[in-house]
Amino acid sequence: MRLAFDDVSYSYDGAKAAEKKGRRGKGAQREAAWGNAPDAAWALRNVTFAVEPGEFFGVAGHTGSGKSTLIQHMNGLVHPTCGRVTADGEDLAEKGVGARVRQRVGLVFQYPENQLFAATVYDDVAFGPRNMKLGADEVDRRVREAMALVGLSFDDLAERSPFDLSGGQQRRVAFAGVLAMEPEMLVLDEPVAGLDPLSRTDFLALIASFHTRGMTVVMVSHSMEDLAALADRILVLSEGRVFALGTPEEVFADGAGLRSVGLGAPAPEAFAASLREAGFSLPAALYDEATLAADIAAQLGAAGEQGGEGRG
């Protein structure tokens, strides 16, 4: 499914702000309208982009940059104040489209374990499929499959209360609850927030495995390292505007720009940038720890040989 944002703006003041904007927003005045309506809280401003089928799409931005508002547009939970969001050409704001799209776009909120409610893990994971009015056999198949996908043992855990599980397991149950709806696109809001380093790695590997299975993944994160490692393209939001959109190489090339909106390039990339300033020649567009170490070692090796020759 191709999910396209077309000049989307969103204000929590809703229709009132739209009216204001409509009145002031004619012609060249349009841009100025933002500054002229200080009491209208614009969470998104003229956002245009599209998530292509099968890609891993990263969304980054400082706190309050509109990330969470943006992803709630992706399954029609909120509708744009101006502009439109379309799924394969269908406008999500139209009657009935939102409910249908919600079965194809799975949205996992931040700290999803806080939304568990059922008496057993089985019932919680089955909540989505049952809401889709599927037969008992189909619900059962989906619950087993979803639990297997997130690495939970059906036999051990299905009949346990989700409230007795550890935090990491609870989050897996919450993931399974969304995966059981078998969405084509998975939207994750800070999926590894509040996890210890080991679980973090596990969860990121899990998310990468969803992507390799053919799911489109949209991941919101403020960890540039995670996005650099996983995403095909990254959207950087700042104060509700699109600040940058492109491959990790393109986005992280502008380290100073990222810092100006409260973000930093991933640690290896930032280190490479300061080494370049100190006279190292590091040609690759995007480094991770391993490639950077290899290139530094090669440079130091070459310098060492030169030094040795000088003395000899």
Binding site: F109, N114, V178
Partner: peptide, 16 residues
């Protein structure tokens, strides 16, 4: 606020 988040999360899972 929390009720709002929970509501939207369950609606995302197809709850009416």
């Amino acid at each position: 606020t929390e009720l709002g988040v929970i509501y939207r999360a369950q609606v995302s899972r197809g709850a009416h």
